[in-house]
């Protein structure tokens, strides 16, 4: 296997999970556990695909996907933040709604091909032998995802708004006592997480496959949730986790294509087994960095 092609394909295969996991990390940093990532991703996948096919522009597709999933995530936000519903149950509900909604919207788009995405050659860097084709000849979303990682990292570490978001996630009672709008901050985080999941989903249907089939995200949203735990709620950890996972996926697909003497089913289940394995190792070592108020409803009772 050509190592240049291998690295390039790992980047493509990691991008959807990177986007979704990054968004979910911000949501969890604000103290909200949204288990609906899978539902938002699949909604993004179908809306992005439909918009891109209808307009012929992948950029419009990505924007539409981000918007649709973000709006969908606000339904979760309204239920958990305003109506104070259980976050685990509501997140599951969001996934079920998203799966149904996407199947309904996507019925007319099966078998259609997505408009092609041009490769963006980074001037100068793309010409470097070996390294150029590996890292600098991708579609624009790969760069967007990497910029988002850097942006989220800087936002959480250096900005006042980032500090407030973390405070709300660590201890919502104290944050409320200090006068921060807990519910508003959380709704904003949920909106951002939804948009990221939508982008990730659209990347699956527009670049990775690129087609629409029902249920095509195949658990990527759940894997994104696991990666947030793996990353100990740090942006760099999310990046590493997503790329490791992308590596495993590419490797097993290549083994399948090469006709390795391992049953196909064993290879197909390997990403999920490895996710479990990673979760086990993380929990054996002790989970660190979980926000203090993660998953707890906030009700200002004064």
């Amino acid at each position: 296997m050509d190592p240049v092609l291998l690295v390039a394909s790992i980047m493509v295969s990691a991008t959807p999970i990177l986007l979704a996991a990054l968004g979910e990390m911000v949501v969890e940093k604000a103290g909200v556990l949204n288990l609906g990532v899978e539902g938002m991703m699949i909604t993004g996948a179908v809306v992005g695909f439909a918009a891109a096919v209808s307009t012929g522009s992948p950029v419009v597709g990505f924007l539409a996907a981000a918007l649709a999933s973000a709006v969908l995530s606000l339904s979760f936000g309204f239920l958990t933040q305003v109506l104070l519903s259980n976050q685990v149950a509501t997140g599951l509900g969001l996934t079920l709604v998203g799966l149904g909604l996407s199947a309904l919207v996507g019925a007319g788009f099966e078998g259609v091909r997505a408009p092609g995405m041009g490769k963006l050659w980074i001037p100068g860097l793309a010409e470097i032998p070996v390294i150029g084709p590996m890292f600098f000849r991708h579609d624009f979303m790969v760069y967007v995802s990497l910029l988002l990682v850097a942006g989220v990292w800087a936002f959480l570490k250096y900005t006042r708004a980032g500090l407030i978001l973390r405070a709300v996630g660590e201890d919502h009672e104290s944050a409320h006592a200090l006068g921060y709008k807990v519910v508003r901050v959380r709704l904003a985080a949920i909106f951002f997480g939804g948009a990221c999941a939508g982008l990730g989903g659209a990347y699956v249907s527009l670049v990775r496959v690129p087609q629409w089939t029902e249920g095509m995200t195949a658990g990527a949203g759940w894997i994104a949730l696991a990666i947030v735990v793996f990353a100990s709620w740090r942006p760099l950890g999310v990046l590493i986790g997503a790329y490791l996972f992308g590596g495993v996926t590419v490797l097993q697909l290549n083994l399948q294509a090469a006709g390795a003497k391992v049953p196909v089913e064993l290879l197909s289940m390997s990403p999920y087994l490895i996710t479990i394995l990673v979760l086990v190792i993380i929990s054996a070592r002790g989970v660190h960095g979980a926000p203090g108020s993660l998953g707890r409803s906030f009700h200002a009772s004064a």
Partner: peptide
């Protein structure tokens, strides 16, 4: 469409959690 029932069932859960 067959998928509309799936959405229907998902909505049921959503509305239940909301009215709770």
């Amino acid at each position: 469409p067959g998928a509309s029932i799936q959405l229907f069932q998902g909505m049921l859960l959503f509305f239940l959690l909301a009215t709770d």
